[in-house]
Simulated scan of single mutants.
Amino acid sequence: MLALWMVIVALARPQKTNERVEQYTEGIDIMLVMDISESMDLQDFQPNRLEAAKETAVEFINGRFGDRIGMVIFSGEAYSLAPLTTDYKLLTDLIKDISFNMMDAKGTAIGSAISSGTNRMREAESKSKVMILLSDGENNAGNVDPIFAAELAAAFDIKIYTIAVGKDGMVPYGVDFFGRPQMIESYLDETTLREIAKIGSGQFYRASDDNALERIFEEIDTLEKAEIIESRYKETMDYYRVYLFWGMLFFFAWLAFKSTFFNNFLLD
């Protein structure tokens, strides 16, 4: 009887199917261009503008898939911190280590920063190239005009999003002897950043606090998503051979013991 049941199960052909999903995308090239001048130490963001920008940039990077992302930092000069890469762990580690003492040159060289980012991206063959420029000041250093740099980037089909960080007017910076917040004046050249975004066929954003900055990066993340293509594979494994083997084994065992003393003993 057991042999018969094994054969019946084998004829039912039991199977196990595993579905595997592979995702891939052509990806986008994104260059983050971040201001690290002294004014980024102002505290209208918590704990300051730079740390808030770094944290938001890391969250943005970790939310991407298949894109190459690079990093340029600048103050009175520009420095390419990381080339376009898909090694997000390396990139986020580099961003977390960004500090004000990484550059000696003072000021805000927006034109030089855009030029440095363009130089990193100009030979890229991706269908979409995006630059995200984040600054809280006006161009007062470097030897490249920001508008000319934006036109050069546009010639290489690089789309530019600009983010103005901070507020105009009096903003907190440190505390006095009695622990009260000290206020200093902050000035931001919004006009130039708007013009850069217009030339670069992107958008201008104004971030006045941590939440606004986070929302801006979320919006850019949505606007610059590459289509993710899924490929599904099914792996099927048959198990009927196991049941057929044991069914045949029990059947032959039954035949072997059918006319033996052991079988007659059981019948008696």
Rank of each mutant, 00 (worst) to 15 (best):
M121I: 03
N143V: 05
N119A: 08
V144F: 12
I114W: 03
L134S: 08
L81K: 08
L134G: 00
F100V: 02
T86A: 13
T108L: 04
N101V: 05
R122Q: 14
D136H: 09
T108W: 01
D145N: 15
A124Y: 00
A82T: 05
A141K: 06
F100Q: 12
S80C: 05
D97F: 04
I110E: 01
G137A: 07
I132W: 02
K96D: 12
N143E: 12
K106V: 06
R120Q: 09
D87A: 05
M121V: 01
Y88P: 12
L91R: 08
T92A: 07
S126I: 01
D104F: 07
S116Y: 07
M103F: 02
N119V: 01
S128D: 08
S128Y: 11
S99Q: 13
S116K: 14
T118H: 00
P83Y: 04
Y79C: 11
G142A: 10
L94D: 09
K129S: 14
N101C: 02
S116W: 05
T86H: 11
S112A: 08
I95S: 10
G111A: 02
L90R: 14
S112R: 07
T118A: 04
N143P: 03
I147R: 12
T85K: 09
A124K: 01
L90Y: 13
A105Q: 05
D136L: 04
I95D: 00
D97Y: 06
T108R: 04
G107L: 00
S99H: 14
V130M: 07
A82Q: 14
S99R: 14
A109K: 04
L133Y: 02
K89A: 14
A82C: 15
D136F: 02
L81G: 03
K89Y: 11
R120P: 02
M121A: 04
I110Y: 00
S99E: 10
S128A: 11
R120V: 09
I114D: 08
Y79V: 15
L81M: 15
K96S: 15
I98E: 02
D97Q: 15
K127E: 09
P146K: 07
N101R: 06
V130T: 13
M103H: 06
I114M: 08
N119C: 06
D97V: 00
I147C: 13
N101F: 10
L94M: 14
S80N: 09
